[in-house]
Design a protein around this nucleic acid. Structure first.
Lengths: 146, 146
DNA sequence: TGAAAACCCTGAAGTGGGTATAGAGTCAAG
DNA sequence: CTTGACTCTATACCCACTTCAGGGTTTTCA
């Protein structure tokens, strides 16, 4: 199958497939005389695995680790379990952080129930007088709100 | 005060302060003969506001909007309220998405309670056989898990 | 006084995980 | 034989910084 077909079948943009190849996540495809990439079913399987991992919000580095294990069927999968445990922790931490953030934002929002002038806006004043929280400072594994 | 002092006082890396100046979030500072930036207390206040917004996980574009209102004290602050409402929505949505993700990850984790070989690992098999979810596909305002 | 240390400058490139573009080549149908 | 759909490579862009290279300035201390 050609790249467009694979893209269609997997729900992955063509550019993303080429990007995964460049990144070494997908092995280089065979080529036709005209340099078109030709994919076998194994490629489709591997791509589906990668996309599934990404839909679970794993980084490409984490995906690389899992792919390495898939390629070494006799290896002990303890590291896979660890990776997943850590990923779950990161997600749980991020949820906690976002919950705290939501609370803070709702408190801030309540400071201006009805629009006034900017000078009197309880939100703008609230941001000014809030003590700096270390919320966004730490390096995080799980992305923020955007 | 010089840039290092402002960095210390605000808990902001020096490079980030220069970056905010380049981005137009902070007005250009006065300079000494030797081209060192010199900051007045207003700069410190403005920087604190920006950092507070960032700790609330707002984008720099959102911060720009809020700063515009701070600079126009007579404007109606309705847009500020809107911006905050939308930001809160984004955060709430992200929390929901991450909760679903956590659940999925925990289910996956339970498929391999004790380490085996990679070939028998319930996690690797689970990723293979899971139907593709649209989780990571949508454009999001609030970051994921990393 | 002079040298070392601490501070600061600019400009460019890198991060992650793609997305978008330009400009060209390839292939199938009519 | 031409049109249009498909594909190719290479490059730039997104965000919010961070890091680096290669200098210049100011302070401190012997």
């Amino acid at each position: 199958m050609r790249i467009g077909e694979l893209a269609q079948a997997s729900g992955t943009p063509i550019e993303t497939i080429r990007f995964y190849e460049r990144e070494g996540l997908l092995p280089a495809a065979a080529r036709t005389e005209g340099k078109y990439r030709i994919y076998a079913p194994q490629h489709a399987n591997r791509l589906a695995f990668i996309r599934q991992c990404r839909s679970l919000d794993m980084t490409l580095d984490e995906v690389r680790v899992l792919l390495r294990f898939k390629d070494q069927p006799l290896a002990d999968c303890g590291e896979v379990n660890c990776l997943l445990d850590e990923h779950i922790s990161h997600v749980a931490e991020r949820i906690q952080a976002l919950r705290a953030l939501e609370k803070e934002l709702r408190a801030l929002r309540s400071a201006c129930p009805v629009p006034h002038t900017a000078a009197d806006c309880g939100i703008l004043q609230g941001i000014d007088h809030a003590g700096a929280k270390p919320a966004a400072a730490s390096k995080r594994h799980v992305r923020g709100a955007h």
